[in-house]
Design a protein around this nucleic acid. Sequence first.
DNA 1: TAATAGTTTTAGAATTAGTCTAAGCACCAT
DNA 2: ATGGTGCTTAGACTAATTCTAAAACTATTA
Lengths: 134, 134
Amino acid sequence: MKTPAQHLTEKSVKVTAQRAAVLEFLQGNRDHPSPDEVYRKVHKRFPYISRATVYNTIKTLVKAGMLQEVLIQQDKTRVDPNVSQHHHFKCLRCGTVKDMPYALMTADHVRKSLKNYQVKEVRMVVEGLCKQCR
Amino acid sequence: MKTPAQHLTEKSVKVTAQRAAVLEFLQGNRDHPSPDEVYRKVHKRFPYISRATVYNTIKTLVKAGMLQEVLIQQDKTRVDPNVSQHHHFKCLRCGTVKDMPYALMTADHVRKSLKNYQVKEVRMVVEGLCKQCR
DNA sequence: TAATAGTTTTAGAATTAGTCTAAGCACCAT
DNA sequence: ATGGTGCTTAGACTAATTCTAAAACTATTA
Ligand SMILES: [Mn+2]
Ligand SMILES: [Mn+2]
Ligand SMILES: [Zn+2]
Ligand SMILES: [Zn+2]
């Protein structure tokens, strides 16, 4: 199994203790934490790290294709080490965010087929270039 | 055609000049403006209105089912007088947000069928209650 | 009408997430 | 060692939003 440092090197991102610590925390994390949650958790084990570095590192790793930031909550961004195309489910009560397959599903299909969940709303945002801009 | 005041009364929201002004600006507006844009535009015609009142009024009208806040941009909320179920398209260059039908569309279907747009990404968020919470 | 109670509006303070800045460090190549 | 580049840092700053407490309205009662 590769170490965080090896992953960084593979993506031509210079290895630093801070970057390795952030990446190690995020790898395998399925919670879609906010940058500040990342900071607090990493800071517990590596008290030398600063908030700014966590933000910088997240940006760096996003650019390197190792993370994505997902728009699920209005006030804070959420970080996702799963960079494959997928959708999300967010629980309106407890706030958990779960990955959903990027499958051929209609909004109605989602609504009907997800027997494990009680679906209240399906929001889809398509991003690209409009007529004028492309 | 009903006046904003009549719409408010219909939904049992007390009529005030400020609420009517905000509603009048938003009715028929297809731009998905941010609260601050609402404030600036309304303030031009009704210079007596305050920023706090715009925020309060938006909250009030959302509760009354006359508006929705849509999650399309991370840093600021966007207000939508179209409360019917629908999806959104956001242009990555100019930032315009357009309504999309809440139709039986797959993410791939969207990608292929929207000939007018160059689709870069399709994000879907399903909201509801998870196994534990319902 | 006058007093009163309840609601809405207001300016500005406070909060929060995120960005920026400028100084200090670390690492590498001379 | 020295210099250069990029990384990290604390704290200042910004922008959106919420909060607060007082003033202005509105409706209701006496
Ligand atoms: Mn995810
Ligand atoms: Mn819309
Ligand atoms: Zn839940
Ligand atoms: Zn455009």
